[in-house]
Design a protein around this nucleic acid. Sequence first.
RNA 1: UCCCCGGUCGUCUAAUGGUAGGACAGCGGCCUUUGACGCCGUGAAUCGAGGUUCGAAUCCUUGCCGGGGAGCCA
Length: 574
Amino acid sequence: MSDSNTAATEENAPGTPRTPSNFVRDIILEDLRTGKYQGRVHTRFPPEPNGYLHIGHAKSICLNFGLAAEFGGRTNLRFDDTNPEKEEQEYVDSIIDNVRWLGFEWQEPVCYASDYFDQLYAWAQQLVRAGKAFVCDLTADEMRRYRGTLTEPGKESPYRNRSVEENLDLLGRMKAGEFPDGARTLRAKIDMASPNLNMRDPVMYRILHAEHHRTGNKWCIYAMYDFAHGQSDSIEGITHSICTLEFEDHRPLYDWYVDQLGIYHPQQIEFDRLNLTYTLLSKRKLLQLVQEGHVRGWDDPRMPTLSGIRRRGYTPEAIRNFCGSIGVSKTNGTIELGLLEHFVREDLNRRALRAMAVLRPLRVVIDNYPEGQVEELDAVNHPEDESAGTRKVPFSKVLYIEQDDFREDPPKQYYRLSPGKEVRLRWGYFIRCTSVVKDANGGITEVHCTYDPETRGGNAPDGRKVKATIHWVSAGQAVDAEVRVYETLFTRENPNEVEEGQDFLSNINPASLEVLTGCKLEPSLRGAPAFGYYQFERLGYFCVDPDSAPEAPVFNRTVALRDSWAKIEKRGKG
RNA sequence: UCCCCGGUCGUCUAAUGGUAGGACAGCGGCCUUUGACGCCGUGAAUCGAGGUUCGAAUCCUUGCCGGGGAGCCA
């Protein structure tokens, strides 16, 4: 609907952020143009409270809330709580929390399919009276056999032609709790020969003597998803009911129920679910990882749950930017994890204050620096944001540097510290390595250097250059910390691709969590708040884990910085 | 075998009968008190075969490939 070529050109200009269109948005645009819903746009995000939300849900949340917001519409948060056996209040709470954290506001109040149980029941009676539904006594097993197969039509249930009176009576008694679980069902009377299995007299209600997290023991029959979802949309005046591709085959049934009931008819639109490399986005499998202890919980920073990636240090903005960039279509694709990491780096680069931390310390003694002297040097907090100011970092005779930043026998192109070579200590002095101290096994325990007092702050008055600037922490003032370094939870791009006889658990990455203790932080990091994020210079983005104690900080590595040296080195090794 | 939905650079996506474009990833370079960031450059695609058309990624036919579907789950 862009009004000119100019607009299109501007939108496509490199570097200009834009919300690309997509086919769902196009449908809404068209409906707005034709006045199909009198200009209304009302979407909904309908999770089942049977697990924690994950990054895949974030895509749906951003789509639903984003589209409504763009057109001045509303979005409901509705729990699809029609199966009390799997649903819990804990999940409701976490979902509400996660959606809010992501930065979206729903139309109050929070909705629940269970709010509509009475209405749904009345509608069921209406279909019975219309001769469109019947009580069936077939067992689950029998029903499966009667259903037919993908290639052969099914057979009609022997109970299909009960009278309206008998059906009404039986339905009432089902509701009254007269029958055990599974004894009977209420079924829609559609077409046992339909090529769409969902239309072969689908179950509307099943008997389930289970306590519901909201309605308690009021009900012992529960509507199936298909008999609840479309009507819930209808009740709420939803215009565009956006769901994932696997519900495509259910759309005819969705339409059938609202049409037979003669109620307001929203339109269901299906899009492709998010898949991410090295990541599992199946609630069932995520639950298994938690229950079997393969991870430390739903919010383990290795989990793709919103709670997990939040704890990992991802920001809502990064996730929203990612969701906005991946597009919406109907192709089954898999996004590379690297794209998500790109967006978190982009956001964190902009906002994270810089600090120095040494993860794998190597002691450095500066032989010509006065014993016992400590000076305070100025360090810039953010190289691209002057308003972030500066801080003081202590400097003294004994420091720690990263083990990776010293090589006794430096390979080609290695710029960092090695015997006889000079480097700059970030915001400090130039130092030159004079000797190496080793233990009995030949392991390097300490490096001795001299410093050039003229280079305070990092510049040489004589104009000489160094190839590298490395980070460091003064030993006497360092804060000890635990740092948790994460790799992907799975070793394969597709964790579901397994050897014969194995399951996805065989693809778990044994190195997905590395706990580093005795890491050395610059003192300004003392007392950093939980979830606070920083860039540890030259290493990556890190955030404070809630496991932290006042004198025992714990950091999570959110994502490493891009590392072109690692690439060069890897290439060299072939 | 039956029904539904898909197939555009390595990956995701745009082009809605009229120049196949962008992002990420890759590669090369510049810059640099982060081997970061940034900047510049570069390679890289319409599943196949027919047809309609002045013109096809787009429309038609057909084949191939991929995904989903036989819960009293959602």
